[in-house]
């Protein structure tokens, strides 16, 4: 390397450092001074206290709202939302798969639409659905069902892109039409990947479903946000525990299933 080039490289390094420094100075500029409120310590203590002394009575209450019912609702929202998106994303996935189309612009437009759907946060979608169909679990199902199309459609289309072309050729050679080729040569090859991705998305949706209630779209989030705003830390504690246990257990089960599929 010539001396000139070396110096050039050094300069460049300093320019990068200057840019990064400028970005961070800008990023900190709007931050308020970090002053701990007088209450903060006390509240933290009571939160920790609540976590270690959860409100066990809330777990099961035959008369009214309780933890188990909330968790079951959350599970139902996540499950149904996942199923809805797993079905709705299929046409998008075939649209966006590059190996199934002759013209490039077709899969490219499909990929673009999927990335727009993906970018649209599920919470925002849930807010809009609440405005349309009213608050409740159904709005949550719709929000998850539509939002997940973005990611599942992308993953599905990638699965389609990696299939072996041989069976397609074989089916074409035996006189099958386009639909028959899809059904007999493409679908059997992609089903395991589709199932595995769907389970993965279910794990993500379960986490999302726990917060949908914060904005009124059903599930355990609603009693949780009530408990937080009313500073009922014992109850927050038991709900958090419930969420953590449910998510970990279902992650484990879904992981087992995914291993069996491959």
């Amino acid at each position: 390397m010539s001396l000139h080039k070396q110096q050039n490289k050094k300069w460049r390094k300093w320019i990068y450092i200057a840019i990064i420094a400028a970005i961070y100075i800008w990023a900190f500029s709007q931050m308020p001074a970090f002053e701990i409120q007088a209450m903060a310590g006390e509240i933290s203590r009571s939160i920790l206290n609540g976590l270690f002394n959860p409100d066990w009575d809330f777990v099961y209450d035959p008369g009214g709202e309780d933890l188990l019912r909330g968790l079951l609702d959350t599970l139902a929202i996540a499950f149904l939302g996942t199923i809805v998106s797993a079905v709705l994303c299929i046409p998008f996935a075939f649209w966006a798969a590059r190996n199934l189309h002759r013209y490039k612009f077709i899969p490219e437009s499909g990929t673009f639409i999927l990335s727009v759907i993906r970018t649209f946060p599920e919470i925002v979608m849930a807010i809009l659905f609440i405005k349309a169909v009213g608050p409740g679990a159904f709005a949550g199902v719709l929000a998850l069902g539509i939002h997940s199309i973005g990611m599942l459609g992308k993953l599905y289309s990638e699965a389609i892109e990696t299939i072996d072309d041989g069976p397609i050729e074989a089916l074409t050679a035996s006189g099958a039409n386009r639909l028959q080729i899809l059904w007999f040569a493409v679908v059997p090859q992609v089903i395991p990947a589709f199932l595995s991705y769907t389970l993965y998305r279910f794990e993500i949706n379960l986490r999302s479903a726990t917060i949908l209630g914060i904005i009124g779209a059903g599930g355990i989030g609603t009693p949780l946000i009530f408990a937080i705003t009313s500073r009922d830390w014992d109850r927050v504690g038991i709900i958090l525990l419930g969420i953590i246990v449910m998510v970990m257990v279902l992650d484990f089960l879904s992981g087992l299933l995914r291993k069996r599929i491959v």
Binding site: G166, A170, S174, G175, A176, N177, F184, A185, P188, Q189
Partner: peptide, 27 residues
Amino acid sequence: DIGMIFQNFNLIKRNTVLKNVLSGRVA
């Protein structure tokens, strides 16, 4: 009316043998 046999068999690996054979009759 024209069957084809390939170097790499071009079967659907995850399907049963019978399903693979039947797939020749779709047309």
